[in-house]
């Protein structure tokens, strides 16, 4: 354009969604529907996919490449933007569900449990597909990531078959009919998408959850994840609801 016009007015557009492509499946919900994408946005936040799949401060959202430190070495998070070559753009519903809830890569090989699939397996397929729907709408980023940067012998993925047999129990969350809907909702969030166990449950030598000490706290790579059980001394037993929500929102406990 030859001449730049000086601009007094900003045209405020409605909420306009930028979006990636989708492959429709006849049986599944319309993944391009607004409600599906909004639900996926919510669950993606709950599952905190961003934290591991984005390089802090400088990375494009969900483009991967962040080194996840583990006692066994570093694992680099994958690109989960809808780029067809280097992200999840060409994945099917089945492939995405398999990765999230079963710890399987698209080629059938096993994911390292730095990806908290032992927790995500508690999620429903509908919720996982909603996350998939949302991720399909974020900016696609072409960024190849080499995920397996572990030293020998941990770089042998086949060994994960044994790990899975020891520590991974596949299966959706089953609500407890003796408990209230709020309790069940909370249990689903804590055990499933929130994957609280990943940091807050003590680990065995091989990095599996010590299920007998569920959520009793852990020192992990220099970070202290406290006991978040109802224990009145070590845990949250004496915290009020406002204490917990305030802490989760601000990172500080109101005294």
């Amino acid at each position: 354009m030859r001449e730049i016009l000086k601009p007094p007015i900003l045209l405020c557009a409605a909420a306009l969604w930028l979006s990636g492509t989708g492959i429709g499946g006849a049986a599944d919900p319309d993944r391009q529907a607004f409600d599906q994408i909004e639900k996926g946005h919510y669950l993606t936040t709950v599952a905190d996919c961003y934290a591991c799949h984005t390089v802090p401060n400088v990375g494009k959202p969900f483009a991967g490449g962040r080194a996840i430190e583990t006692p066994f070495g570093a694992i680099t998070s994958s690109n989960i933007t809808p780029d067809a070559d280097t992200g999840i753009g060409a994945w099917s519903d089945e492939q995405f569900d398999n990765a999230v809830r079963r710890g399987l890569h698209t080629d059938g090989s096993r994911l390292y449990p730095a990806m908290p699939f032992p927790a995500y397996t508690k999620m429903s397929r509908e919720d996982v597909l909603a996350i998939f729907a949302y991720l399909k709408t974020v900016e696609p980023v072409h960024q190849p990531v080499k995920s397996n940067t572990l030293p020998f012998p941990f770089n042998i993925r086949a060994a994960l078959r044994v790990w899975d047999a020891l520590y991974f129990t596949e299966g959706e969350f089953q609500p407890d009919s003796h408990q209230s809907p709020a309790w069940n909702r909370g249990a689903y969030l804590v055990q499933g998408p929130g994957h609280c166990t990943a940091c807050h449950t003590p680990k065995t030598l091989l990095g599996g959850d010590k299920t007998s000490d569920n959520l009793r706290g852990l020192n992990l790579q220099g970070w202290f994840a406290p006991d978040i059980t109802g224990d009145t001394k070590e845990g949250l037993g004496n915290w009020s609801e406002a204490d917990i929500t305030g802490y989760l929102k601000t990172g500080h406990k109101t005294e």
């Binding site: 601009p7 045209l11 969604w17």
Partner: peptide, 10 residues
């Protein structure tokens, strides 16, 4: 003159 458009992403 319009300066452009503002929008909100997903």
């Amino acid at each position: 003159h319009a300066t452009g458009v503002s929008f909100v992403d997903t």
